[in-house]
């Protein structure tokens, strides 16, 4: 566990009296694909927002390549939020230009080839696109980054099974070499096969932090483990 790419130490976050994260600890090493699992409202997004620098009033420590979230960590992390974050007036072309302006590790050629592969019009305003098209634009912007860590918050939420396969294929095909992925979802079945490690959050606490290999060694699937951990939650 020598040089962790991401290290989270005793992370606590509350909104008023409501404690959403209560002493989370884990590490992600380079090259790992980690599933962040848990039901809606368990604190996954709050944790991700703390890692990417959107939430700063947390307790504990977050280290990305040994440094606190800041300009350098933002260069290393490519983040795909649940929300549509692009301005309505932007087109895929102007969004690519925007990202290329700010991120040195943004690969423009890759972005245009993905745009073509996704069959997206480069000059259509994003606000006039369907939700699925908008999600594809955001995905290609993230996956065109030659990042060290991809943080994908519910990339499979609200899409049909065929689209889920397409998204997962895009992620796996386009990730930068030896990069890590932290993927938050509650659709375990679709990602089970690609995960190296799983983190499960329950009631703001890290309930499970284990290699997928260990789960398989116990004659279980990740989905079985998930059901066992969250049986009483629903």
């Amino acid at each position: 566990m020598g040089n962790a790419l991401l290290q989270v130490k005793n992370l606590k976050k509350s909104y008023g009296d409501h404690q959403v994260l209560n002493g989370i600890n884990f590490k992600i090493n380079p090259g790992m694909i980690v599933g962040l699992l848990g039901p809606n409202g368990c604190g996954k997004t709050s944790m991700i927002k703390s890692i990417v620098g959107l939430i700063n009033d947390y307790e504990g420590e977050i280290l990305i390549e040994g440094e606190h979230p800041g300009v350098e960590s933002k260069k290393a992390i490519a983040y795909l939020p649940e929300k549509n974050y692009l301005p309505a007036w932007m087109t895929p072309k102007s969004a690519i230009k925007y990202m290329a302006d700010f991120y040195e590790n943004f690969n423009k050629e890759k972005a245009y080839s993905m745009l073509k592969a996704f069959d997206l019009p480069e000059n259509q305003k994003i606000k006039t696109m369907s939700k699925g098209m908008q999600e594809k634009v955001q995905l290609l912007l993230v996956m065109s980054r030659e990042a060290k860590l991809y943080i994908l918050d519910e990339p499979l939420g609200g899409v049909d099974p065929v689209a889920r396969d397409f998204i997962m294929e895009t992620i796996m095909k386009n990730r930068f070499e030896n990069s890590s992925i932290l993927l938050s979802t509650h659709l375990i079945y679709d990602i089970e096969g690609i995960l190296d490690r799983v983190l499960m959050i329950k009631g703001g606490e890290l309930e499970v932090d284990t290699d997928v290999k260990n789960v398989i060694d116990h004659n279980m699937t990740v989905e079985d483990l998930f059901k066992e951990v969250f049986r009483n939650v629903f």
Binding site: V52, G53, L54, V71, E72, K75, Y85, F102
Partner: peptide, 13 residues
């Protein structure tokens, strides 16, 4: 707004 997800994750102070 939602664009804050883009703005605040840019590598800029």
């Amino acid at each position: 707004g939602e664009r804050g997800y883009l703005t605040f994750t840019l590598p800029v102070k």
